[in-house]
């Protein structure tokens, strides 16, 4: 009995230590970044590193107001593009995934085709897409970025949704069919709630992926649709790298994604705890 009580204290404590260790190790680059963002230039370049230092907000001020860059605008662009991409990807992939799984259209060929897109190096497409976008006036627009980012994220989302729909018990849908529900209604009212965790994961990945996308945003924007990643890279100048400013920009740019992930995460967990699948 005593033995059990001891282990009932030790096991959770150990679990917490392991949890903290995991979080600490995987987030060490970000912690390093955050620390850097609060140091003065001289402190950043001092060895041994200063653990206790006078924190300054100068880099954040520079990022947000100085240097003539419109960072709030960059943020706005990134949010619009990432959300837009997530929505578009879901809107396109959910029906397609359902059709692929339940009707087996094309015998799996559409899935293979879309997944193989992931193999294409984005680099190759930049010049043709630039020319195309210039022609149809999508250059330096958020819509243009949304379209291209969707292309990049389609494979992940489709693959995930196909996986989740395949796991659905067919009986529920059949019952609904018998009740006379049309396919779109079925998708909206029955399939959608059932695969919320899958949707959550797909949306989260699409959002995060789009938020971090660099090469496409670099090539396809000039000044109006510049995103945060490209904006932050402006602090890598032709000469020095402005470590403090980059670190501050990274720290700021992580906040919206973190909020988004926490929101979608909650959904994911709620969907599970409601026990749809159990």
């Amino acid at each position: 009995m005593r033995k059990r009580r001891a282990s009932s204290i030790i096991a959770p404590a150990l679990r917490w230590i392991v949890t903290l260790a995991i979080l600490l190790v995987f987030n060490s680059p970000i912690l390093g970044t955050i620390i850097t963002s609060f140091k003065t230039k001289a402190d950043i370049s001092s060895m041994p590193p200063k653990w206790i230092f006078h924190p300054v907000l100068e880099h954040y001020q520079n990022v947000l107001y100085a240097f003539g860059y419109d960072f709030p605008k960059f943020f706005q662009n990134s949010i619009v593009v990432s959300l837009g991409t997530s929505l578009l990807v879901l809107a396109v992939c959910l029906p397609a995934a359902y059709s692929i799984v339940r009707y087996d259209v094309g015998g799996g060929r559409p899935l293979i085709f879309v997944v193989s897109l992931r193999l294409l190096p984005v680099v190759v497409f930049t010049v043709p897409i630039f020319i195309l976008f210039q022609y149809v006036r999508l250059l330096d627009t958020r819509i243009g970025l949304i379209l291209m980012n969707s292309l990049v994220s389609l494979p992940i989302a489709l693959l995930l949704l196909v996986g989740f729909i395949q796991d659905l018990p067919r009986a529920i849908e059949e019952a609904a069919m018998i009740d006379g529900a049309s396919t779109p209604r079925l998708l909206w009212h029955i399939v959608l709630p059932l695969i919320l965790p899958g949707l959550g994961a797909a949306t989260m990945l699409t959002f995060v992926w789009t938020w971090n996308e660099y090469l496409l945003s670099l090539v396809l924007t000039l000044r109006k649709a510049t995103t945060v990643t490209v904006g932050a890279s402006l602090f890598v100048t032709a000469w020095e790298v402005q470590w403090g400013e980059i670190a501050a920009a990274i720290t700021l740019s992580v906040i919206p994604t973190l909020i988004f992930v926490m929101l979608t995460q909650r959904h994911l967990i709620r969907a599970i705890s409601f026990g749809f699948l159990k």
Partner: peptide, 16 residues
């Protein structure tokens, strides 16, 4: 334009 990929971007624009 950011330094990283600067001339690459100019090259793209010129080519187009």
């Amino acid at each position: 334009f950011g330094r990283e990929g600067f001339f690459e971007k100019e090259a793209t624009m010129m080519a187009a």
